[in-house]
């Protein structure tokens, strides 16, 4: 049985002002200098390798963590590595207000959970979710709970295709 509920620690991908960074493109997530890599296990160490201030993310994060980023996350190229690198690190999910169109497909097709959380930037600004807070997400109910504070937020639930593919593992195993 696929587990559609997760619990983990939050990484807020923020700038110097403590605001979530918008428009993080695939070259910042997984730089084009490493596109020759085809082994997923070798991709993790390059995650955010070209995102100023976050180059050490692969060392800082732990398997089971959850990434929060600004809108239009994964803009740019079609590279699957920009999804696979998070899987390699054991990241459980990415949460953002919106995604690059191709990125969204790539994540869904890999069975990697990406969630849409409207107004996420504002909630982070207000301090409703802080770095390293523990949160619980229910993909199907569309609910995100900040365990640290007890606050519950509504997020977009999984679409049917997202659920179907994740249940089977990936698009290639449906």
């Amino acid at each position: 049985m696929t587990d559609f509920k997760i619990k983990g620690k939050v990484w807020l991908i923020t700038d110097n002002n403590g605001e979530l960074i918008n428009d993080i493109d695939t070259d910042q997530i997984f730089h084009n200098a490493f596109l020759h890599i085809t082994e997923i296990s070798e991709m993790g160490e390059h995650t955010f390798g070209n995102l100023e201030g976050w180059e050490d993310f692969p060392e800082k994060c732990n398997p089971g963590d959850i990434v929060f980023a600004g809108s239009n996350f994964g803009a740019g190229s079609s590279r699957q590595q920009a999804v696979d690198c998070f899987e390699a690190l054991g990241i459980k999910a990415i949460v953002s207000e919106s995604y690059g169109a191709i990125y969204k497909r790539n994540a869904i097709n890999s069975g990697f959970p990406i969630l849409i959380f409207q107004q996420i930037n504002n909630f982070v600004k207000e301090g409703a979710i802080k770095n390293l807070d523990e949160i619980e997400i229910d993909f199907i109910a569309g609910e995100l709970k900040n365990v640290s504070s007890g606050k519950i937020f509504k997020i977009d639930p999984f679409s049917k295709v997202q659920k179907d593919i994740m249940e089977k593992g990936s698009l290639l195993t449906i």
Partner: peptide, 8 residues
């Protein structure tokens, strides 16, 4: 025309 990742 639609760009896609390698799984797609």
């Amino acid at each position: 025309g639609q760009g896609m990742g390698d799984v797609d």
